[in-house]
């Protein structure tokens, strides 16, 4: 605190704390409060919500749809973010380093485009791609009438999310790989190290922090991503109903705001656990 003094230091922090309190802490507490109510969008419970204690939580934990939703979310996050975006992003970053200038520009541009386009536009394009009657994919594969989103809902949203979000991982890994000193790579090559070996012993230790940070971010984003709803509506038969979709369908479509809040809080806790897990890993690396 040298030079500032506690009082002034606090003064500097207060605006930030106030913002955090207003936009993070308060909504969380508010969600906690709504979660113990039977509170609906319309009907008598809209005007006079009833206190139900942990009722919403026990309802959620015993609802097979909730369990289904948790499993789907884990699969969605694991396949599309942790494996898909991470893997593809790294692969693109690594290969593009050696690519000719215009190829790199082109691929970079295309990958970025899929990331920066608005969700609604992108989903509209994907619907045209996957449509059962006259979709582009069916025309290309000569499989008229194949209902991709209905027959393979989870695979659809996984592939979609990989396509949609790989850009971030690619950019981050490009920057990370730039930080690996060329001299190290050359030394490894002089000693006869193959590409895998070089990756494991020279590149990986350098970019481990980036991998963890990247994985943390894309895990949280994907976990809370609502875009799949626009593609599959959570269906058919709840087969692509990830947690954010489940919350939306229960609280807005089903009008059960209190129940939705309870699930949201459970999601918040899961998010915290994920974040803590990665932070722990990061710290272990630092220490």
């Amino acid at each position: 605190m040298a030079g500032l003094g506690t009082g002034r230091a606090v003064l500097f922090v207060v605006p930030a704390l106030a913002l955090i309190a207003a936009f993070l802490v308060f909504p969380a507490l508010w969600t906690l409060y709504l979660g113990v109510l039977k509170y609906d969008l319309a009907g008598s419970n809209a005007a006079a919500p009833q206190f139900v204690g942990l009722g919403n939580y026990t309802d959620a934990l015993t609802d097979p749809r909730f369990a289904n939703s948790v499993l789907l979310t884990l699969a969605f996050v694991g396949l599309s973010a942790v494996l898909g975006q991470n893997g593809l992003g790294f692969l693109l970053a690594a290969t593009l380093r050696r690519a000719v200038g215009w190829v790199r520009m082109l691929v970079n541009g295309l990958v970025l485009l899929s990331w920066i386009l608005p969700g609604t536009v992108v989903v509209f394009l994907w619907q045209a791609l996957l449509d059962r009657n006259g979709g582009t994919l069916n025309a290309l594969l000569d499989t008229p009438g194949a209902a991709w989103t209905l027959d393979h809902p989870l695979a659809t949203i996984v592939v979609f999310n990989i396509w949609r979000g790989t850009a971030f991982s690619m950019l981050l890994y490009s920057a990370a790989l730039d930080a690996v000193p060329t001299s190290h790579l050359e030394t490894a090559r002089l000693y006869g190290s193959g590409p895998l070996r070089t990756f494991r012993d020279v590149v990986l230790p350098r970019i481990r922090g980036h991998i963890l940070t990247n994985t943390l971010l894309i895990t949280l984003w994907t976990f809370n991503d609502f875009t799949p709803y626009m593609l599959t509506g959570g269906g058919p038969e709840h087969r692509s109903e990830t947690l954010p979709v489940y919350v939306y369908r229960m609280s807005i479509e089903g009008g059960q705001l209190g129940f939705g809040s309870a699930i949201s809080l459970i999601m918040l806790v899961i998010n915290l656990v994920i974040a803590l897990f990665y932070l722990r890993l990061l710290r272990r690396r630092g220490g």
Binding site: D40, L41, A42, G43, S44, A46, A47
Partner: peptide, 11 residues
Amino acid sequence: DSISRYAKAGY
């Protein structure tokens, strides 16, 4: 069919 639900909510 919504009148009752809306009326009870005060809408």
